[in-house]
């Protein structure tokens, strides 16, 4: 197995995440795209770890940290979505223009 096959797959996944982030209007779908990008980063971390083979498995430890922070981010993100929906009756980002200059 080449290292590059994993890196390029992760790059494709990350770019699709960027596309979804910019194209979607619904906040929940934007959060789904962010999850896609974080998963791509995790693939990179694990692939580098399996080449470098550090004695303390540092790449895998960092992947676990990324997963934990992603879980916290989803929790807070959906709480904010819930509050916005309750106040504005909408979950579309282009209708939330209260602070637009």
């Amino acid at each position: 197995m080449l290292l590059n096959q994993f890196l390029i797959l992760a790059a494709a996944m990350f770019s699709l995440g960027i596309y979804g982030l910019l194209v979607r209007r619904n906040i929940v779908l934007i959060l789904l795209s962010v999850e896609l990008m974080l998963a791509a980063v995790n693939i990179n971390l694990i692939a580098f770890e399996s080449v470098l083979r550090s004695p303390e498995a540092i790449g895998q430890v960092f992947a676990i940290f990324v997963i934990t922070v992603a879980a916290a981010e989803v929790g807070i993100g959906l709480a904010i979505v819930l509050m916005i929906f309750r106040n504005r009756k909408s979950a579309n980002v282009d209708e939330l223009d209260l602070m637009r200059w």
């Binding site: 890196l7 790059a11 990350f14 770019s15």
Partner: peptide
């Protein structure tokens, strides 16, 4: 957005 994501992919790979 499509152009930006293709550019990101090309740059990263």
């Amino acid at each position: 957005p499509a152009l930006l994501s293709v550019a990101t992919f090309v740059l990263l790979s």
